[in-house]
Design a protein around this nucleic acid. Structure first.
Lengths: 300, 300
DNA sequence: CACACTTACGATATTCGTAAGGATT
DNA sequence: AATCCTTACGAATATCGTAAGTGTG
């Protein structure tokens, strides 16, 4: 039994005429006749009762009719679904991004993507850097955005930006007037940091330990936006990845470049090296890379 | 998209190897490769990710896999169901029979049928003659057994027996000793009849009116078995179709032939003339005809 | 005799298996 | 070098459309 045979049967059963059904299927009447006959032979009995003047269903044909209808409907739906997936008329992508990216550059990239593929559903997981890696590794998401992993075992990393820490200071502060401040100058102020185990916090602690001893933290928070507001309120200063400059400004804080030692880390896109991306994920990846290239200039 | 392509995909997706899958499908590896490729081309993208050393599913392949499994399972089930219907390994027949037949000859015929086709379900509707005709006409049942219809419009009638009325009298009655009684002798006793609108009752009334005036009824019942018991108890006499002789004897009543005028009516099988029987119904019809031929001799 | 389905037959397409090619371990 | 998938190609098979056949109203 094959699809053609079942379609032939269904058409004849609905038209109750081989000639009409043949027209509907763009098939000659004899060809259709043979197709139905072959189906009947394979199943072992007549499905249609044809006198030379009229066609009707046998009881077995009657049983098959609703089944055939359902079967072919499911068949066509499946085919259509897959086709839509491939043409990106439909689909799902899941992406995990660390907060500093998810909250800043991602939205505008998603806007571009959405305009291009309006019917593709995007699930964004705004999680800390470690979880981004984990989710990609465990296939919870197809794409991840975060800091370049130490050991990119099984993970394919595509760098987007070279991100460096910038100082965040209250607008009225003397430091806000400077073109550049040193870590020494910054750490003399009360410091507001992200709570562990944020990657940003850990990065800061590790890289500063050598030269400025232990990081002395006055306030801590989970949220970048909270830090921005705290700085804006004059509670202290902070240091954040340059990705967040725009966000800090909007929160009323001021950003100033930090002098040597530059704490830098590459930010980029991660995916499993040995696993093919869905068409939708591939398209999203392309859009993200495209957007990253545009923004790279600004951040240098 | 056709069945072969989907089976090919499913096999490869399960084996994760073209070579193994080809073996399972009794197909050469290159043929299988082309089949999968053709499916991918039709759907518009890759379903399987093949490095020369390993095969894995793409995300779209992952989506298709459960759908394909379901689709093919449904497909095979439908095919198997129809095949079983045709080979009578499975199936349903519905038959309506008037009580005198349903309660007497039908059970033994069904026993024969059951032995021959143990997995075919038979639904018996034990209803009065008029409903038998109606149910056949309205396709509520495929087969019907009852008196020959006046106008066999659209109904195909196959005669089984020439049934004639016989007198039913108590065992101790003087009439019980006779070889034959006349209607006149019988109607001098208290008469027990089936209630209207039983066909047997109507038949009796119509055919007797000419010669013996109105039928005077002492007792009435819906059930043949009740009538048998009433006669056996000495409440009166009755007249029933010869089909019921055995039943009357078992209930303790005695049957005697009735002299002229013989009230006779053909009993047989009815089906819609323009509608083909299911394989199961056809088989049941064959068994019923077979059984009727055996029993005809007894009743002559 | 006209209509509708079936059968017959030659032409075209598809599908298959064998053989050769390419890439990875 | 061995294994596994892909590509190439000739052969077998299947499917199609035209034309002839058959039965019914």
């Amino acid at each position: 039994m094959n699809v053609k045979q079942l379609r032939a049967f269904l058409a004849v059963a609905q038209c109750l005429s081989f000639a009409q059904a043949g027209e509907r299927l763009h098939l000659s009447q004899p060809a259709l006749s043979l197709t139905v006959k072959s189906l009947e032979d394979e199943l072992g009995g007549k499905l249609l009762s044809r006198t030379t003047r009229s066609v009707s269903l046998t009881p077995e044909g009657e049983t098959l009719l609703p089944l055939a209808r359902q079967l072919l409907a499911d068949w066509d739906n499946t085919e259509e679904l897959l086709r839509q997936r491939f043409t990106l008329q439909l689909g799902k992508v899941s992406i995990a991004a660390m907060p500093s990216y998810a909250g800043n550059l991602l939205p505008s990239a998603l806007k571009v993507f959405r305009e291009r593929y309006p019917r593709v559903n995007v699930a964004v997981h705004d999680v800390i850097n470690e979880q981004v890696l984990e989710m990609v590794r465990h296939r919870r998401v197809e794409l991840g955005i975060g800091f370049e992993p130490e050991s990119s075992s099984s993970l394919l990393f595509t760098p987007f930006y070279m991100d460096r820490f910038v100082a965040v200071v209250p607008v009225g502060s003397p430091l806000a007037e400077r073109e550049e401040v040193t870590w020494g100058e910054l750490l003399r102020e009360d410091f507001i940091a992200l709570q562990r185990p944020s990657a940003v916090r850990l990065l800061l602690e590790q890289d500063l330990r050598n030269q400025h001893g232990k990081l002395s933290v006055a306030f801590e928070s989970h949220q970048l936006s909270t830090i921005g507001r705290m700085v804006a309120s004059g509670l202290g200063v902070s240091a954040v990845p340059s990705l967040c400059i725009q966000q800090m400004r909007e929160l009323g804080a001021h950003c100033v470049a930090l002098a040597e030692p530059r704490i830098e880390r590459r930010i980029g896109l991660m995916m499993l090296a040995d696993h093919k991306l869905s068409a939708a994920a591939q398209a999203l990846r392309d859009v993200l890379i495209e957007c990253a290239q545009e923004h790279t200039l600004e951040n240098v």
